[in-house]
Design a protein around this nucleic acid. Structure first.
Lengths: 202, 202, 202, 202
DNA sequence: AATGAATGAGCGTTCATTCAT
DNA sequence: AATGAATGAACGCTCATTCAT
């Protein structure tokens, strides 16, 4: 009888993989990709250094895995919030609020983003991150199509949204206390007030 | 007889220093600080490896020098534009337009920023960069004081401005052709439309 | 199942550590600390350069290890001989003889001492070396207390003993054949004849 | 008319050479040969680094020069004292006393010896140092020939003398106050008491 | 003779990765 | 699958020495 994935061994394998990922996420958050060593990662798990390579092909691969896994956890949440929106104003507000909630609740998830932001977009981003951006973009395009949003330059619009989310979010988490609601209101007001003024495409 | 800068030797020194800085800037732009080696830098200049240390104390020092020198070139230009503004609408527009002009004209100056943005703010930024942010912030505070801008959360406002400048600028330079004026209009419209809607402080 | 020292792997580890220590000892003896490179040391063992750092934290650490290990081997032997002494004359003779025996039998142990003698005493010496000197000194003080030795300046006395041991020992090992017994007799006669003439303290 | 050595240029040359030698002596005394850099030496003179090589062929050569020059200053003084001796007892006493006087008066001359003692004898010693040892040795041989000293093993005898001078001298200079006379009496008593007991040769 | 920038071999050390056990 | 010692390329940096001026 072959072991089809439910056995003890597989459970252990999954636990080890998770432990390594978790340790890696912490370190990438604390000191960044460049300053994290594979040894640091495995030392935190109590496993042996060679074991790392039973789970990941390289340091780069685990970095991608951390980012992908993070994006995979965050993406559906952001999407779910957006979909629930009843108007574009609401869409913008929910987008900011849910993003700010997530980073407020997961400070070191956010630290990974900031500390390694040079590796976030373009060549260095992962599939999952790219997919998250595409999703946002296509939701915005949809809103344009449905007439909820004027016919703006979607590319630039998404870029502006992203920039504000990242930078304003950064300031937010440095405050004490962190006020997610007020910060979301700030960012959403700026956008919702500004959208009607945006140049139309054509 | 002391040769105070006019001699062949001094010329050569300046040329070497510039060549090293230029090579460093290119590499920091192409692959980032972590992946750039001192040997890469000097190899690009044709000089010997030891020569690097006649001009810079360490790899870190040249990175700071690149950033400081960049910020020192950019900062007064941005400031000069802002000061010329006749209204806050104009202030916002000029800020975006001059920033976009600069990054359009100096693609690898901009790449340094993007590829190393984790080292831009906070502890890891240089004096000159910090001064640039302070300057922007204090110009905005001034506008509030003079009643040109409602009493908004200046910190978040500057963050939003920065985020939009960086992300929208990033998309802009990837387009062909690069349209600085249209991009500036986009960003400025968003802000100028949104500002009146911003929550007041207190 | 933990392998506590009996396994092949542990044996190999011990063998490697010994090989590195041995190579280091030889090189410190042949060319001194300053002229010895870590690469020279590992090259002599056939191991890879990184392997050195699996066993020692730094070049300095292995130098201390060589000196400590040497002192640790020599110290109890010298002590054991001294303790067996039946009179102070015997104490002196045994001290010289056992020291000369040791250096005759371990020429490059001795060379380490000579080639790096600037690092023997004071700040630069190791714990074990300092302990060896302290032990000798306290044995001499004991002899004074028990009336076997006049009340001389113990500090200078120990210094004189040390100086003669080192310098006379140095000449001895350069002779062919090496005559430990005759050399010990020479040094001991000088001291034992001279001690009664030494100025009393006070 | 040719400049036969008395001109201004030659004076300056001599002054530069002396300044370099002096700086080198200080550094060899303070930090030892290995830790002294040629740049350190010339920096202390105010000259340019290339100038060093107009006066000395290499770092090693100046080290030899420092040692030779030191030995050349010390040697005649020691000799002159010994020659004045009226008996062998006096010879021994004067030898120690004059050596101790010199090291007490020139602490950093002495520091050069201690800090670089691994390079004092054998292969690494200079001509002048070797000559000093030879001279001492031949004075002792002379004393044997003239019947002032029993027919001892001169080689070992000179070694013992040297060892006591160095080690006892070392302790002496660390005391406060430094008592040259008492220290010389100590060392001389040991030897003069011990000599009659020394084994005869043959 | 003096200068000081340029040279490049070489140093101690790190670390992602491999592999025998 | 787990171990952890071994590997070796590569790093940032130093410094004795050379050489054009």
């Amino acid at each position: 009888m072959s072991d089809t994935g439910g056995g003890k061994r597989e459970l252990n394998k999954q636990a080890n993989r998770d432990a390594i990922l978790q340790a890696a996420r912490e370190l990438f958050a604390e000191v960044g990709y460049g300053a994290t060593t594979v040894r640091d990662i495995i030392r935190r798990t109590g496993l042996a250094s060679g074991t790392f390579y039973n789970y990941f092909l390289s340091k780069e691969e685990i970095f991608d895995a951390v980012r992908n896994e993070t994006a995979a956890r965050v993406r559906p949440r952001l999407r779910a919030e957006r979909i629930r929106a009843t108007s574009f104003e609401d869409f913008i507000h929910r987008t900011f609020r849910s993003f700010f909630e997530i980073i407020a609740a997961n400070p070191n998830l956010y630290a990974v983003i900031r500390r390694n932001s040079g590796m976030l977009r373009g060549q260095a981003g992962t599939q999952e991150i790219a997919a998250g951006f595409d999703e946002l973009r296509s939701d915005v395009e949809d809103a344009v199509r449905r007439g909820l949003l004027p016919d703006v330059d979607v590319d630039l619009f998404v870029a502006a949204l992203t920039g504000v989310a990242l930078e304003v979010g950064d300031r937010m988490v440095q405050r004490d206390p962190v006020d997610v609601e007020a910060t979301a209101r700030f960012a959403a007001s700026l956008f919702n007030g500004g959208i009607p003024a945006l140049p139309k495409r054509g």
